[in-house]
């Protein structure tokens, strides 16, 4: 069974993105083991000269490294991903590279009708950068708008169409994870390249 890390893209106490991931954890329990990962409480990334990464970050990196794939659910703040998620990704690409060639599925929930369309595009751009280089599942947006009304009291998605869409995308993601395993011809070279990347000595 695939093991996935599900990153809650916010530090908010009440988040429909967390709810969405909790729903997936339960709903797909027979298909995959999903572990939620919180990103609250990391220090603000300040590019420390000693290149030390906080212990909480190395723990997160180890879990991501060991997982078959990563699901990120992002809110949208100011037409983009939240600072707290960007911060976690900055730490997770600072002299450590757990995301290289890692399959990633991006989803998102918002109170309004757009369902984080712009934050997801932003997150895609970030994950594609040289020190992250994740394998992001292409052409597969899951936008959950009006998220406050989207769940029933047991935490299940109300809308059947939305549920069917998510089921399909999740099955696709499992396939994508398999395909990605075959896309590893350049992995050693890419990983080496990322390790060698040294902005201080360009």
């Amino acid at each position: 069974m695939d093991k996935f890390i599900a990153i809650v893209g916010t530090n908010s106490d009440n988040s429909t993105n967390r709810k969405l991931l909790q729903y997936m954890q339960k709903h797909y329990a027979n298909q995959a083991e999903i572990e939620l990962m919180e990103i609250k409480g990391l220090p603000m990334f300040n590019k420390p000269a000693d290149k030390q990464v906080p212990a909480a970050v190395t723990d997160m990196a180890a879990k991501i490294e060991a997982a078959d794939g990563v699901i990120i659910s992002t809110p949208e703040y100011d037409h983009s991903a939240p600072a707290v998620l960007m911060n976690a990704l900055e730490w997770l690409s600072f002299h450590i590279h757990p995301f290289v060639d890692k399959p990633v599925m991006i989803i998102g929930a918002s109170y309004g009708s757009l369902g984080t369309s712009r934050a997801q595009a932003h997150l895609r751009q970030i994950l594609d950068s040289p020190e992250l280089r994740a394998r992001i599942m292409p052409s597969s947006e899951f936008l959950l708008g009006h998220s406050l009304q989207a769940f029933d009291e047991t935490g299940n998605l109300v809308d059947e169409q939305k549920t069917a869409k998510l089921d399909g995308l999740f099955a696709d993601f499992e396939t994508f994870v398999e395909i990605t395993k075959r896309l590893k011809n350049a992995h050693a070279a890419t990983a080496q390249e990322v390790r060698d990347l040294d902005w201080d000595n360009l």
């Binding site: 603000m44 990334f45 300040n46 703040y77 100011d78 983009s80 939240p82 600072a83 707290v84 960007m86 911060n87 990704l89 900055e90 690409s93 932003h122 751009q125 970030i126 594609d128 950068s129 020190e131 992250l132």
Partner: peptide, 18 residues
């Protein structure tokens, strides 16, 4: 530019200011 985007520290400032 960090990871093709602005820094989290700047984004956080903008989030407070919005």
């Amino acid at each position: 530019e960090h990871n093709h985007t602005i820094t989290a520290s700047l984004k956080s400032v903008i989030e407070w200011l919005s």
